[in-house]
């Protein structure tokens, strides 16, 4: 990290400015602006229907916003508005530099091909044509996400929900992305599996120095994973700040409600 000059370090990886998405006359998200730097984990929290997923879809290039810009520091064009790129370039950037972990692994995996092929697919998309090398990379990544490597050729449907989610994580990290989007990555899992997956994610993110935008309605996930938080309500960002700051000393009435609503045992 010392080798990186301060100026580059300070340059944002992702800059979102005045992002608004209307569904007809209903607002998905309104006037959202923030910056994300390398290695930073940003949590987006809020209740159902507050615009978290709309925001994530807009900034991950999957849903063009009604107004506002999303700029990403691409390796080929520098800091560029992603919706200003032409479609092949945008798709290539999404393929090469991003990952997207869906809430439901079925949305993020190809259910008809084996877990190993799912993990290796990003490598093939990047032009890797050597089976042996891809195979060993896949085995290595299955180990990293703590899956039994003997099950490499099993179909995703034969894995449990938590294992499918691990496959999805491996698939989204194997090609060395710089930014990973996660939409409720632990949403459908039971609590003990959630905890293990979170632990694993936290470790991987730290080791790889990834920038992550993680959408969640679970305060515990936010507390564990995120460096910074964005609290959303009715499409607006109502509060931002360091995770501990927001969760320990919420300023906005809604954030206070959110934090106080967490069940204690």
């Amino acid at each position: 990290m010392n080798a990186i000059p301060q100026a580059i370090e300070a340059a944002p990886l992702l800059r979102v400015d005045g992002l608004t998405k209307w569904y007809g006359h209903v607002a998905g998200c309104r006037d959202v602006s923030f910056e994300l730097r390398r290695g930073e984990v940003l949590g987006v929290v809020g209740e159902s229907g507050s615009g978290k997923t709309t925001l994530l879809n807009c900034i991950s290039g999957r849903l063009p916003p009604s107004s506002g810009t999303v700029e990403f520091d691409t390796s080929r064009f520098g800091l560029t508005d992603i919706y200003g790129l032409n479609e092949p370039d945008r798709r290539r950037m999404q393929r090469e530099e991003w990952g997207f972990v869906h809430q439901n692994p079925r949305d993020g995996l190809r259910m008809r091909v084996s877990g190993g092929a799912n993990v290796a697919e990003p490598l093939m998309n990047l032009g890797n044509r050597h089976y042996g090398k891809m195979r060993s990379a896949t085995v290595e990544w299955l180990q990293r996400v703590e899956l039994d490597t003997r099950r490499i050729d099993d179909k995703p449907r034969n894995f449990s929900g938590g294992m499918q989610q691990r496959i999805q994580v491996a698939r989204n990290l194997i090609h060395g992305p710089r930014l990973v989007f996660m939409d409720e990555p632990t949403g459908g899992l039971d609590v003990s599996v959630q905890a293990r997956l979170l632990d694993l994610l936290r470790e991987l993110v730290r080791d790889l120095g990834l920038a992550v935008i993680i959408v969640t309605h679970d305060m515990a996930v936010a507390r564990l994973m995120a460096d910074r938080l964005i609290v959303m309500k009715d499409g607006f960002v109502v509060e931002t700040g360091l995770t501990d700051q927001v969760l320990d000393d919420p300023q906005h009435a809604y954030s206070q409600l959110l934090v106080s609503s967490v069940l204690q045992i």
């Binding site: 092949p88 190809r110 091909v113 092929a117 697919e121 089976y131 195979r135």
Partner: peptide
């Protein structure tokens, strides 16, 4: 879109499956 942008990595997934099996 895949044909238009020459994104043919996916076809290799079927070959990969075949070699793996």
């Amino acid at each position: 879109a895949m044909h238009a942008y020459e994104e043919y990595g996916l076809q290799y997934v079927s070959l990969y499956e075949s070699v793996a099996t």
